[in-house]
């Protein structure tokens, strides 16, 4: 789904996207990594069951996990779209995916992804960011994100985090390195 202007940042580094996002009406390729909008996934769920390559799903802003909770284990990618960064529902959806439904595939934030929310997103369980905002891309590249790395809550993606002391819910996270 990244357009020429978006960059994909994944688990700490910029990467080329190996997923394909067939447009409406375009057939689903027989193999390779393919992610579909929720409605299309639901409509073609039976047919997709026999497919070889990994399957992913894209949830637009406001779309919930209803009807696809049982499919979560088969997804290799779940994309949650932020139409506006101030719409915080995806943070809860991400945490439910990680903590309750045990999703271990790639969880990608896309849309209005800005540097000031990157740390929140990572702690909520996202491990990939599809970024359209040039300033955010540059800042991540240069390792210049200024944020708070001491946390008062356990998070859903604690790679690189450690319990920081007496308080059971206290954590520290690493700074985002440049790459």
């Amino acid at each position: 789904m990244p357009t020429p202007e978006t960059a994909l940042w994944r688990a700490g580094a910029f990467a080329a996207d190996d997923w394909r996002f067939p447009a409406a009406g375009e057939p689903v390729p027989a193999d390779g990594k393919v992610a579909l909008p929720k409605a299309r996934f639901l409509a073609e769920r039976a047919a997709l069951a026999g497919r070889n390559g990994p399957i992913g799903v894209v949830l637009e802003s406001g779309e919930s996990l209803a009807d696809i909770e049982d499919d979560v284990p088969r997804f290799g990618l779940i994309v949650l779209r932020f139409a506006r960064y101030a719409d915080g529902r995806n943070y809860s959806t991400a945490r439910i995916l990680r903590d309750r439904l045990g999703f271990r595939g790639e969880l990608r934030a896309s849309g209005d992804v800005l540097r000031d929310q990157v740390l929140f997103m990572l702690r909520a369980g996202f491990d990939a960011l599809e970024i359209a905002h040039a300033g955010t891309v540059a800042t991540l590249k240069e390792g210049r994100i200024v944020g708070v790395h001491r946390h008062y809550q356990p998070a859903s993606n604690e790679i690189g985090e450690s319990a920081a002391g007496l308080r059971g819910w206290q954590r520290t996270s690493r700074r985002l390195a440049s790459n």
Binding site: A86, D87, G88, Y91, M121, V148, H151, Q153
Partner: peptide, 14 residues
């Protein structure tokens, strides 16, 4: 206060 400070899930509520 501590738990709610910069909570990653609840910083963009309705």
């Amino acid at each position: 206060r501590q738990w709610s400070s910069l909570h990653p899930e609840f910083s963009f509520l309705p």
